Structures are given as C-alpha cells and as structure tokens.
Amino acid sequence: MGARCPSAGAVRRTAVLGLGALWWWAVLRLLLVPDAGALEGAVAAGGWGLSVLPVHCTPKARAEGAGTPHERH
C-alpha cells in the first residue's frame, strides 16, 4: 500500500491556517505582552500588508466581459 499524496487544496488550507495562526499569535503578543519585540511587529505588519494586496484582480485582457483592446478607452 503506497502513501497518498495530499491534494493541493489540502496543502493550501493547511498553509493558510498555519500562517493565520502565526499572524494572530504575533498580534496578540503585541497587544498582551509588554516586552514583545521586532519579530512580532514584523510578522503582524507583513501579514497585514499581504492582506491588502489585490490578489483577486484579473488582468483586463482575461477579464470576463472585457472588450477587445481597441474597444477600451
């Protein structure tokens, strides 16, 4: 019996949950521990910075309903 490879979706969910937990740890530590340092600040700021990236955007050329390039203004 061979070992099964995890699906890409399962790996992605695990990574998101792990990184989310790391971010919350950093934020809570910054709020609750008076001597929290630069590491926690960097993790919290980095996670927030990633959250404002427009990763849901689609290039105009591939967007559904987009006209041909010469029709756009």
Results as ranks from 00 to 15, higher is better:
residue 1 M to K: 11
residue 1 M to H: 10
residue 1 M to L: 11
residue 2 G to W: 01
residue 2 G to D: 07
residue 3 A to H: 12
residue 3 A to E: 14
residue 3 A to W: 06
residue 3 A to V: 12
residue 4 R to G: 02
residue 4 R to C: 06
residue 4 R to I: 09
residue 5 C to S: 13
residue 5 C to W: 00
residue 5 C to R: 15
residue 7 S to H: 09
residue 7 S to M: 08
residue 7 S to G: 14
residue 8 A to P: 00
residue 8 A to S: 11
residue 8 A to D: 10
residue 10 A to R: 13
residue 10 A to P: 00
residue 11 V to W: 02
residue 12 R to D: 04
residue 12 R to W: 07
residue 13 R to C: 04
residue 13 R to D: 15
residue 13 R to Y: 01
residue 14 T to Y: 07
residue 14 T to W: 10
residue 15 A to P: 00
residue 15 A to D: 08
residue 15 A to S: 07
residue 17 L to Q: 12
residue 17 L to A: 14
residue 17 L to V: 05
residue 17 L to M: 07
residue 18 G to K: 11
residue 19 L to W: 05
residue 20 G to T: 08
residue 20 G to D: 04
residue 21 A to P: 00
residue 21 A to N: 04
residue 22 L to T: 10
residue 23 W to C: 07
residue 24 W to V: 15
residue 25 W to C: 10
residue 26 A to R: 02
residue 26 A to K: 06
residue 27 V to H: 02
residue 27 V to K: 06
residue 27 V to F: 08
residue 28 L to E: 06
residue 28 L to V: 14
residue 29 R to V: 10
residue 30 L to S: 06
residue 30 L to R: 15
residue 32 L to G: 01
residue 32 L to D: 01
residue 32 L to I: 05
residue 33 V to M: 01
residue 34 P to Q: 07
residue 34 P to M: 00
residue 34 P to K: 05
residue 35 D to R: 10
residue 35 D to F: 04
residue 36 A to N: 03
residue 36 A to V: 04
residue 36 A to S: 15
residue 36 A to P: 02
residue 37 G to S: 05
residue 37 G to N: 03
residue 37 G to R: 06
residue 38 A to W: 13
residue 40 E to D: 14
residue 40 E to V: 02
residue 41 G to S: 13
residue 41 G to A: 13
residue 42 A to M: 09
residue 43 V to Y: 03
residue 43 V to M: 05
residue 43 V to N: 03
residue 43 V to H: 02
residue 43 V to Q: 06
residue 44 A to R: 06
residue 44 A to G: 06
residue 44 A to W: 07
residue 44 A to H: 08
residue 46 G to A: 08
residue 47 G to K: 02
residue 47 G to P: 05
residue 48 W to L: 15
residue 48 W to H: 01
residue 48 W to P: 00
residue 49 G to R: 10
residue 50 L to E: 07
residue 51 S to F: 11
residue 52 V to P: 00
residue 53 L to D: 01
residue 53 L to W: 13
residue 53 L to G: 05
residue 53 L to M: 14
residue 53 L to R: 12
residue 54 P to W: 09
residue 54 P to M: 03
residue 54 P to A: 13
residue 55 V to C: 06
residue 55 V to M: 10
residue 55 V to H: 01
residue 56 H to M: 02
residue 56 H to A: 12
residue 56 H to C: 06
residue 56 H to F: 10
residue 57 C to W: 15
residue 58 T to I: 15
residue 58 T to W: 10
residue 58 T to N: 05
residue 59 P to L: 13
residue 59 P to Q: 09
residue 59 P to H: 14
residue 59 P to G: 08
residue 60 K to S: 11
residue 60 K to W: 12
residue 60 K to R: 15
residue 61 A to G: 01
residue 61 A to C: 04
residue 62 R to I: 03
residue 62 R to K: 10
residue 63 A to C: 08
residue 64 E to W: 13
residue 64 E to Y: 07
residue 65 G to T: 04
residue 65 G to D: 02
residue 65 G to C: 03
residue 65 G to Y: 05
residue 67 G to F: 04
residue 67 G to W: 03
residue 68 T to F: 09
residue 68 T to W: 14
residue 69 P to D: 08
residue 69 P to F: 10
residue 70 H to F: 09
residue 71 E to R: 14
residue 71 E to P: 00
residue 71 E to K: 11
residue 71 E to C: 05
residue 71 E to L: 13
residue 72 R to I: 07
residue 72 R to E: 12
residue 72 R to H: 12
residue 73 H to E: 14
